[in-house]
């Protein structure tokens, strides 16, 4: 296993795989800034093979696995040579429509992965008017809130199934004013973590602490979010397909499945 020290090394490895590709396959869509963060924290390891490159990113107590392969056949053969998949705790995911995901699932299952969860993407066009406005005060999270925000997210979401942020990512999001919170008695009762780029905005996490539920805090956060994102034309989010309660709530706000799924797989070290 090699440790990547520069962003360029990662892109070079991908490019070398692409150069020999007859039917390039990947689940790795790296953004340079994110890669830089992983490299600075020594979180990104890799295995380079003939016609395929594999990446392992440390995430809490397990690794996330990514691949670039010149073809489905290369993926099938080279993934079986990775001994780390037999010993380490590893999760991975495949994004696409049902057909594309099913095709790439087979080699991963042959390497010891099993389906762990499925997320579905939901989208909502911008709407004018019609939304109620809550009286609950919604504010941006402050720097000191970061550990509590992380705790609430980790309690509300599955670390294997959904890509939870690290503390430094939450601190950056707070600094970029991407996290709304409702506070009760000085404590964070609920949060909405979003990322807006141009005309698109994605809700990354929406959660209310257990003891503050049924107080319409979640509604206040969502209404405030829509109200403040005036320029956005399209709202998206990913939700666990088994979380019917959350899906119903999102439908209430106008979101609907758009056909894209994210199939999360985990190896036996995680499942047992």
């Amino acid at each position: 296993m090699i440790q990547f020290r520069k962003v360029d090394e990662v892109f070079d490895a991908i490019q070398k795989t692409k150069a020999k590709a007859s039917d390039f396959r990947t689940n790795f869509f790296p953004v340079p800034a994110k890669l830089q963060n992983w490299i600075e924290r020594d979180e990104l390891l890799g295995e380079v093979r003939d016609g395929a490159t594999f990446f392992f990113r440390k995430d809490r107590d397990f690794f996330r696995f990514y691949f670039c392969a010149g073809s489905l056949e290369k993926l099938e053969s080279e993934i079986l040579t990775l001994s780390f998949l037999k010993n380490g705790s590893v999760a991975t995911d495949l994004v696409g429509n049902e057909t594309a995901v099913a095709e790439m699932c087979a080699p991963l299952e042959a390497a010891g992965f099993s389906r762990y969860a499925q997320l579905q993407r939901m989208a909502r066009p911008a709407q004018t008017g019609g939304l109620a406005v809550s009286n609950l005060p919604v504010v941006f999270a402050e720097k000191a809130d970061a550990p509590t925000v992380l705790e609430l997210i980790e309690n509300a979401f599955d670390r294997f199934g959904e890509q939870l942020p690290a503390l430094y990512e939450i601190e950056a999001a707070i600094s970029n004013r991407q996290i709304f919170v409702v506070k009760r008695d000085g404590k964070i009762a609920g949060l909405l973590f979003f990322e807006t780029q141009g005309f698109n905005s994605i809700v990354r996490f929406w959660a209310v602490a257990e003891k503050f539920r049924a107080l319409k805090i979640g509604s206040a956060l969502m209404q405030h979010y829509f109200k403040t994102q005036n320029a956005v034309r399209r709202f998206t989010l990913w939700v666990n397909a088994a979380n019917e309660n959350a899906i119903q709530k999102y439908k209430h706000y106008g979101y609907a499945p758009d056909g894209l799924i994210d199939c999360v797989l985990a190896n036996k070290m995680i499942r047992t």
């Binding site: 869509f29 594309a100 399209r234």
Partner: peptide, 22 residues
């Protein structure tokens, strides 16, 4: 929901992401 003829950079404008490309 988007007017693609009015944008010169769909990615920066948030009109297409990597998943939409697929």
């Amino acid at each position: 929901e988007f007017d693609f003829t009015a944008s010169s950079d769909f990615i920066t404008d948030g009109m297409l992401d990597s998943f939409d490309m697929v």
